[in-house]
Design a protein around this nucleic acid. Sequence first.
DNA 1: CGCGGCCTTGAGCCCTATCAAGGCAAGTGG
DNA 2: CCACTTGCCTTGATAGGGCTCAAGGCCGCG
Lengths: 238, 238
Amino acid sequence: MPHSDLRLRAVGVVPGIPPGNEPDPIPLSPEDRAELVHLAQIITYKAAGSLIYAQGDTATHSFLLADGLVRISHTLADGERQIVAFHWPGDLLGLAPEGRYINAAETIGPARLYRFQRQELAAFLLQNPRIQNGFLVKATHDLRALQRQLIVLGRYDISRRLAVFLLDCAAHSCYFNAADAILTLPMSRDDIADYLGTSAETITRSLARLESEGQIERLTARRLKLSPERLSAGLTLD
Amino acid sequence: MPHSDLRLRAVGVVPGIPPGNEPDPIPLSPEDRAELVHLAQIITYKAAGSLIYAQGDTATHSFLLADGLVRISHTLADGERQIVAFHWPGDLLGLAPEGRYINAAETIGPARLYRFQRQELAAFLLQNPRIQNGFLVKATHDLRALQRQLIVLGRYDISRRLAVFLLDCAAHSCYFNAADAILTLPMSRDDIADYLGTSAETITRSLARLESEGQIERLTARRLKLSPERLSAGLTLD
DNA sequence: CGCGGCCTTGAGCCCTATCAAGGCAAGTGG
DNA sequence: CCACTTGCCTTGATAGGGCTCAAGGCCGCG
C-alpha cells in the first residue's frame, strides 16, 4: 500500500464552528507509521454490533481504529449501560492499565482496526520515544474530550446535550455532508441515550423539540438536516 | 533531601473495598525521579482557593501535585461551573494539548507542587522513554477515572453519586482515619455539588438521606463517620 | 460580640424517567 | 408479491427526583 490510513485522531476544542472540518491528526512520521503498521495485525468486522472485546476480558491487545465507528460501553451490575465514548478512525482502544478491559468495545457498522499485542506494543513504545509521545499526546486529547463530556453531562439539559452530540457527529465528514448539512446518524436512539445519560424516549422527544425550534429538521429517523449556527447558539461551552 | 515525595498516583479500579488503602504509585526509578525533580521548580500555596492557572491562560507549565488537594474546574459562559476532577498528591495537572489551559486549577487548602516548563518537559520526556512511559500510564489511569465519573454522572442518582464520592475520598488516608472510619471533607458543599453535577442543597439533602439510612453519620458538616460496607452495598460499579 | 461564609431546611414546579401502546420500515418466508 | 415478524422509533400519561428561590441556623473568625 502506498501510504496506510494509520493515524492518531486529534480532538478539536469545541463544537466545531465549521462542521465537517476535522482537525489535523497528531503528527507521526511516515517511517513511524510504517513501523507501527508492521507491528500490527489488521482486523476486519463486517457486521454491526460485533464484539471487539468484552468488559472483564483479559486485556491482551490494544487497538487503533482505522475505519468505522466503535462504541465503548460499561454495563453495571443492574444492567444499566453507559456508553463512555464513541471512537472514530484514528482513536486508540483498549489501553487498559490493568490486566482486564474495564469496558466493552463493539462495532457500529463495518469496521477495520489495527491490533497490537499489549506487551509487544509496550516494549516497542519504550524503544520509540517519538511514537510513544504521539500516544501520550493522543491520551491527553482523549482526556480533554472526556472532560468535556463530563461538563455536558453535569451541566446541560438533554436538549443541549443532544445539540453538542449532533455537532460532534457533524465534525466527522464521513457521516455529515457539509454541502446540504445532512447528518446521517450511524447509531440507534438507545446508543445516543446511553451516551448522553438519558433514555431513548427522551432522545426522540428532544429531537422533536430541536425540530420545533428550527435547530434541526428530521428527514427520516436517521437523517437530519442541521442548522449548525442555531444548534450552537444555545450552547455555552468555551 | 533523602528521597523526594515526587510520585505518579495510580487509580484503583473501584470504590475500594478497603478504604484508606491507596494503590501503589506508578513505578519510577529513584534516578528518574531525581531527574524530574531536577527539572522542576517547587511552588507552594499557603491559602485555600489559590489560583494555580486560569481557564484560558496560555499554557506555559505543567504540574505534578506533591501535596495538598486541587480542583480542576470549567466555567461556562453562563456562569455554571463543573468541577472536572479533584487532584490528589501524585496527579499531573496542566497537560493541555493546545496552547491554552481549558480549565482552571485552584488549591483547596495549602498545596505544594512541582512545576515544569512545558517545552522543557516535552523535550525531556522525548529523551527519557521510561519516564514518558510513566506519564503515558498515568494518563491512562486518569482516562479510566474520568470514564468512571462519566458512568456515575450518567447512571446514578445523587445519593449514589455521593456514596461513590465519599468512598473515593476515603481512599485517601490524609482525610480518612481508617481506625474510626471518620472522613474529614476538605471541600465545600458547592465543590461537591459542582463535581457531582448537582446543587449544594441537594448534597445536603442527600447526606441527610444517607444518614437516615445508616450509611453515614454526620458529626459536623465536614466530619462524617462512614459505614463503608453499607455505602458500597447500593452501588453496582464493577 | 458581631459579622460573613457556609450549611440546612422548606415549598413549588419542572424536567425527565418509566411504563405502556402504537407506528414504521426493513427483512424473511411463503 | 404479500403476510408476517422483528427491531427501532414515536407518542402518551403519570409520577417523582432534583432544581430554584427563599429564609433561617450555625460556626469560625476578627
